[in-house]
Design a protein around this nucleic acid. Structure first.
Lengths: 154, 154
DNA sequence: AAACGATTGTCAACTATCTTGACAACGATA
DNA sequence: TATCGTTGTCAAGATAGTTGACAATCGTTT
């Protein structure tokens, strides 16, 4: 994956500048459209809506709404559920930031799909790989030199 | 984050069961609606469309369309661009799978936001943390015991 | 039981967004 | 110039979403 390609791809994913309609959010989360409109009126969620345009919700907002729903299911009041969801709203942003900072390439390791997360900060001679096995994901340190030869053979 | 809450959240994110309309994809990627319809007719992208319903595109498909666009920008023909994009289409799926398999919690390390990715497979006494510094993300090994105390204090 | 406030649902009238098919336009190639 | 692949425009019609009004439901308090 060349750098410019990766940068542009990261840009569109990282910036989160994609939106969906109210019905889309409702179907994805199982929350009724009426509820979503009320939650927005109360300020718990927000949408992008120009004059004479339909609401558009970001993916972050979809997740936030779903988190509110989960907290409601656990018995919290709407106000508290919204509060708790707001406190958790940074998780996915953080995850995205990390992945697109460190992601280098898709690869295989041990005949299993893996992603290369770049040089390991505690040992610069090794690359950190996340390898997806059938029973779970493991992190592996891969000597940088062997990996280089492996890439040449592909 | 309690386990059930996390499981349900992971479910909705992992399953990718959220969709957006043609216009949404067009705005997000800068690809015209006409192009997207043609690409779908040629089989390069697909949408979910029930009888008498509007098209709905998954996020994966949005990314695939954008990748096709990027390859077109690099000078490839549409057919080749679509071929290349198809070959890359597993990346984000893999990333998502890894993250939601290994993600344990949001934390701070060194006064910086971090995520805890669970026990490090090469050293079970340590946790693997991804720490977001101003100039980039680093992976850190954190002694499990100290981390446990740290969690108790929160 | 009645009252109140919060939350949610239903509906009518209207607007936004999208669909298809037909045809035009454009660019690359022979 | 002709051909083919790709893209754009348009009309007629359908889907999806909006607002405001009012009703219904629920939980709590008096």
């Amino acid at each position: 994956m060349d750098k410019e390609f990766k940068r542009k791809l990261a840009e569109i994913v990282k910036d989160n500048a994609w939106y969906m309609g109210l019905g889309d959010v409702s179907r994805a989360t199982g929350i009724s459209q009426t509820k979503l409109r009320y939650w927005e009126r109360k300020g718990y969620i927000t949408s992008k809506q120009g004059k004479n345009q339909n609401r558009k919700f970001s993916y972050s907002m979809l997740i936030k709404a779903y988190q509110i729903k989960l907290f409601l299911d656990q018995g919290y009041t709407l106000a508290v559920a919204a509060e708790k969801a707001a406190a958790k709203n940074n998780v996915l942003k953080l995850v995205r930031e990390i992945i697109f900072d460190r992601f280098e390439d898709v690869d295989t390791y041990d005949n299993h799909p893996a992603i290369n997360l770049g040089y390991f900060d505690e040992d610069k001679d090794k690359l950190l790989y996340a390898v997806v096995y059938d029973d779970g994901t493991q992190f592996k340190l891969v000597p940088a030199k062997i990996n280089k030869d492996d890439q040449d053979s592909k």
